[in-house]
Design a protein around this nucleic acid. Sequence first.
RNA 1: GCCGAAGUGGUGAAAUGGUAGACACGCCGCACUCAAAAUGCGGUGGGGGCAACCCCAUGUCGGUUCAAGUCCGACCUUCGGUACCA
Length: 837
Amino acid sequence: MSYPFAEIEKKWQEHWDKDQTFRTGEDFSKPKYYVLDMFPYPSGAGLHVGHPEGYTATDIVARKRRMQGFNVLHPMGWDAFGLPAERYAMQTGIHPAITTKQNIDNFRRQLKALGFSYDWSREIDTTSPDYYKFTQWIFLQFFNSWYDTERKKARPISELKVPAELQGKEREEFIAKHRLAYIANMPVNWCAELGTVLANEEVDEWVEKGYKVERRPMRQWMLRITAYAERLLTDLAELDWPQGTIELQKNWIGQSTGALVHFGIEGTHDKLTVFTTRPDTLYGVTFMVLAPEHPLVETLTAESRKAEVEAYRKATALKTDLDRQLDAAKKEKTGVMIGAHAIHPLTGEKIPLYIADYVLMGYGTGAIMAVPAHDERDFAFAQQFGIAVKQVVKAETGETELPFAGDGLAVNSPVFDGLKTPEAKTKIIAHLEKEKTGERRTQYKLRDWLFSRQRYWGEPVPISFDDEGSMVAEENLPLLLPESQNFQPSGTGESALANIPEWVNFERKGKKYRRETNTMPQWAGSSWYYLRFADPHNKERFASAEAEKYWLAGGVDLYVGGGEHAVLHLLYARFWHKLLYDLGYVTTKEPFKKLVHQGIILGEDGSKMSKSRGNVINPDTVVAEYGADTFRLYEMFMGPLEQMKPWSSKSIEGIYRFLARVYRLYLGEGQLNQKLLAAPSDEKATQKVLHQTIKKVSEDIETLSLNTAISQMMIFVNEAYRLESIGNEAAQTFIRLLAPFAPHLSEEIWSALGMQGSIAVASWPQHDAKYLVESDFEAVIQINGKIRGRTRLAMGISDADFESAARGVDTVQAALDGKSVKKVIVVKNKMINFVVA
RNA sequence: GCCGAAGUGGUGAAAUGGUAGACACGCCGCACUCAAAAUGCGGUGGGGGCAACCCCAUGUCGGUUCAAGUCCGACCUUCGGUACCA
């Protein structure tokens, strides 16, 4: 049963290494193909069987492209900054750089053992100063840019028009407010035990582990991704991405159109501005709600309500996101009246103001006009607080049950009565615009990106502050992460870097400065790594202009990685790319042309692999038992790449048997099987199955239908066993088809066949349609759509001859007997259907 | 709730609107063997029939069509994402 895979695989891996078989070509006149995997975080647990799934698929494509004569860029690297290494350091005192290096070495060893055709000379590591130099450099591009909403692009901050009356500190603040990287006091998820702020997406994970997370406003670096909301949305149209991922990004960006409406406030000159998608319900407003954090709450709250309002605001601040979600699920609304009134812009009516935590400060203007008749949430609130409900839209058909949030006809809305909802919206907006009490507005759910972390193990933010608090960008990059033995956060909300005064404080040209102690989030390094691969050793630039232009032409040709990155990583990378595009550093609008997500591989029990379930499959064990080629082939044979699928140790045996069968077919008992290579026992049959296989495998690799490509190769091998002799030509052609899938075994057979050079650079076979032409076919005869007979007929038979031949078949004759044929449908060279009464 | 993906043999799965279940796993049988394993060859959706054949079958119910796993409508189930976004 065995074939000597261990020996073969070791031999060829060493050969490829020594020979630099997969070194990327530098000839920019050749057609290029850039095929990229999402680079991994090198965790201490080592490679998971899920990693090689996508990696094998891209490797197959990369290998085929090389054989087709493309200049292929197929690199690998490490997304190596991250919290686990830092936490480990806090527990053990071992520097994260040390564990990270160990983990990388282990990952690299495991990947090499799988025979991937990466150009290891281009390996990158986000924690290397040579790399994060440019992560910091790109951060400074954000810092030194502003977004010109008229030209719809980022421009250098030096081109920002600053009002002449602003001088000194005021001028500086004006500029700071326009930077695409800016500091803001933001409510963040503070975890006292970890001594750090968590990203929204991290909160649940830590709460589950029993950590306490509360919201607390802190000084944070932000990236103004919201400036790009519209472009991030519209440019999705040109991407060859899974529809689901595009939808996810659309929802995340969350565009909605409506209007801003300005309400006056009784007894003041203040304005309360709200955003609404339903300006047509303006006459139905019976109260208004501000987010508890809304700045106007301070000034508007009546003396008599102050205590209650203050208590409510405090209670809200202590609520975690989880609490809020639970409230939302219960549909219970809380809130308090603030004792002030707005003035309705159309009717002049007095409208009571409330604060309630169902209104979020982070969306729209942080305040809403409440229309209980036509909004579920407002309705629930009105019910609880005994507020009037005023219907202003009725359903076009049937009864209108309140709350009614659908489109209909306007009622109780003086001059707008009878208008359909879309028209009512337009008319009311036009009216508001004329009266200067409102305007059309497009709003996005997307928030600015909270970009600072209170961690040691991350890229330092290259900004310093002088005594007056003025910001200075570090010119001398990289700004190195200082050595440290103390990885505990300062506990004050600053990172462990704050514990290193000799790094934090410095003097330059006689002036004293203090460095920023926040570091960047893990997303930073992964937001541009695909660019670095184009020119990974460039010391001057993130990549040379020529290399970027060549390798990124049209974007990365194929990008494969987990669906869990459908939103954040892929949105952040698109955002960074667009900034670089605006500033002229990259030549395409979008970084990733075609994207595919590999499905999750489940444990044998059909549940997610996890240590606690004990259903984890370790790639090292599988490779030791069956070899890398079997591992690769099995993961591709399991099912469609994008699909979630369970591991099966039975099925992998089947794949192993297939490869052993290939080995024996060619190499018999250790030496070349001369019988196989002898003149074909059936020339026609050999050519037919061979060219079918060339066609199917070639096409299936293009669509990443790798499971069916393998099926076809199995069919070929079964046929070769049956034929016994297929001749040298067919034998070596088939091995070239197998090579991208099972590269080690293919190299071994290739060299045994006496072929020169690595099969990795052999030419990809072309199928010849003439061998696929059949002289006859099995005709299917249906009566009323049911099969009633079959017969073999010559290809190209006329419809009339087809019909008479069909009528001649016994079973058909019997079935047609005594029935009148009303219609005959012939599908050429395939089937015939008699429609009978 | 909303958005997305998917429901096909005992199992993983194939199938430009035109022969449902390719290819594998498992199982059964045969050959080789003293025997077993390995290997090779054959069979294998369910039901009926000695047989030729017949009936049923792609989550459910309808529809379009000469013809539906595939297209359309409603529903059920599972998985993933998201959620007081005004």
